[in-house]
C-alpha cells in the first residue's frame, strides 16, 4: 500500500492505495466521487476527464500513486455554494446532453478549454473536445453549450 496526499475539490485527503490503482478508481471507489465516469478505460472516450493541477487529464490513465501532492478538481467540485457552474448551466440550457454518460467529462474538458482561452469558436471547440466521445452523438448541442458556457464564464470573471 502506498500513502498519498491530495487536495480534492479544495479538501485535503490522505489516501492509501495499491500502486496499480488508477486515479479514477480511487476517486470513485474510495472517495465515492462517482461523477467521474469510466467509459472505455482505454484513454479514448474522455468520460473520466478531471483537472490535475489545472490541466484536463484522463483519470483512467493516471496512476493514483503518481498524483501525490496534486490538486484535483472533479465534476463535483465545479459548483460553488450549490449553485451550478456556468458550464453546467449552459449544458442544461442548451440540452447539451442526451443520456448524460459523457457529460461530466465533456464539462471538465470544456472548462479547461475556456480556462486556457481556447474556446474561441465552434471549430476550436470541436478540435478541443476531440478527446471526448458522445455515443449519443449530440455534438451540435454540446458545441452550442460550450459557446454559451464560455461567454458566461468570461462574464463572471470580468
Amino acid at each position: 500500500m502506498e500513502t498519498i496526499e491530495l487536495k480534492i475539490n479544495g479538501r485535503k485527503r490522505t489516501l492509501h492505495c495499491l500502486p496499480n490503482a488508477t486515479l479514477v478508481e480511487v476517486l470513485r471507489d474510495q472517495l465515492h466521487l462517482t461523477g467521474t465516469h469510466i467509459g472505455c478505460d482505454t484513454t479514448q472516450c474522455g468520460a473520466c476527464t478531471i483537472h490535475v493541477d489545472g490541466d484536463a487529464v484522463k483519470a483512467c490513465t493516471v496512476l493514483a500513486v503518481r498524483s501525490d501532492g496534486s490538486e484535483i478538481t472533479t465534476i463535483e467540485g465545479l459548483a460553488e455554494n450549490e449553485a451550478s457552474h456556468p458550464m453546467q448551466k449552459a449544458f442544461k440550457a442548451c440540452h447539451g446532453l442526451q443520456c448524460g454518460f459523457c457529460t461530466p467529462g465533456m464539462i471538465m474538458s470544456a472548462v479547461d478549454l475556456v480556462n486556457k482561452g481556447c474556446a474561441v469558436d465552434p471549430a476550436a471547440i470541436r478540435e478541443g473536445l476531440s478527446g471526448n466521445i458522445c455515443r449519443c452523438t449530440g455534438y451540435q448541442n454540446i458545441v452550442a453549450a460550450v459557446l454559451q458556457g464560455a461567454s458566461e464564464m468570461q462574464e463572471q470573471s470580468s
Binding site: G46, V52, T61
Partner: peptide, 9 residues
Amino acid sequence: IGDRQVRHR
C-alpha cells in the same frame, strides 16, 4: 498529437 488530455500528460 492525440487530444488535449493526452497532450497534458
